[in-house]
């Protein structure tokens, strides 16, 4: 605050104030504002927590897909319920997501083109999930595939792997 030119008039309009530090009124104002802020922040955090469900009834994240002999060499198999492709090449076998990395549409394997195509915005992926062209920014996500002791394969959707990781079978 700048010093008024005529102190007798303008300062007499204000309440007497302790120039040294906080006045009692300022102190309570700040306490009140702080309390409101803390309460508001708390309410916000609690609201966000309330709005995020803790239990979700979503499909299981790991599942068995049978023995490797179910999948022929040089084939792409679409598992509709899990929305993954099981691709078997001469090198081995891997699992990749069928969900387009662009905006989440379900892609389709086109055997005649040897291509995975997205119906929504025209993205095209190669057999190994890498982007051929189109708006998709990333290759299809690969998931870990494991051989179980009983000879069946298991896919874990929570374990993301690099496209180079292929299960030798």
């Amino acid at each position: 605050m700048s010093e008024p030119k005529n102190p007798t008039v303008s300062s007499s309009l204000e309440k007497p104030e302790d120039k040294e530090g906080l006045s009692r009124r300022d102190f309570f104002n700040e306490i009140a504002a702080g309390a409101l802020g803390v309460a508001g922040l708390g309410a916000f955090v609690v609201s966000v927590r309330y709005l995020s469900p803790n239990v979700l009834f979503e499909p299981p994240t790991n599942f068995r897909i049978g023995p490797p002999s179910d999948y022929q060499v040089n084939s792409v198999t679409y598992l509709a319920n899990q929305e993954v492709y099981i691709v078997r090449t001469s090198d081995g076998l891997f699992a990749q997501s069928a969900i387009c990395t662009h905006l989440g549409c379900i892609t389709q394997w086109k055997p005649e083109l040897e291509m995975i195509a997205c119906p929504c915005h025209g993205s095209k992926f190669r057999k190994d999930g890498s982007v051929e062209h189109g708006p998709a920014p990333r290759p299809l996500q690969h998931f870990a595939v494991r051989m179980m002791p009983d000879g069946e394969l298991m896919v874990d959707l929570l374990e993301l792997v690099k496209p180079t990781q292929i299960l030798k079978v």
Binding site: A80, N81, E83, H102, I106, Q108, C118, P119, C120, P135
Partner: peptide, 24 residues
Amino acid sequence: LLTPNPAKAPWYFLGLQELLHYFP
């Protein structure tokens, strides 16, 4: 499990969807 082909948004968002076809 089945995306219709083509999957289109409401008409007033189709301009936006067309943009999505071109740009990241």
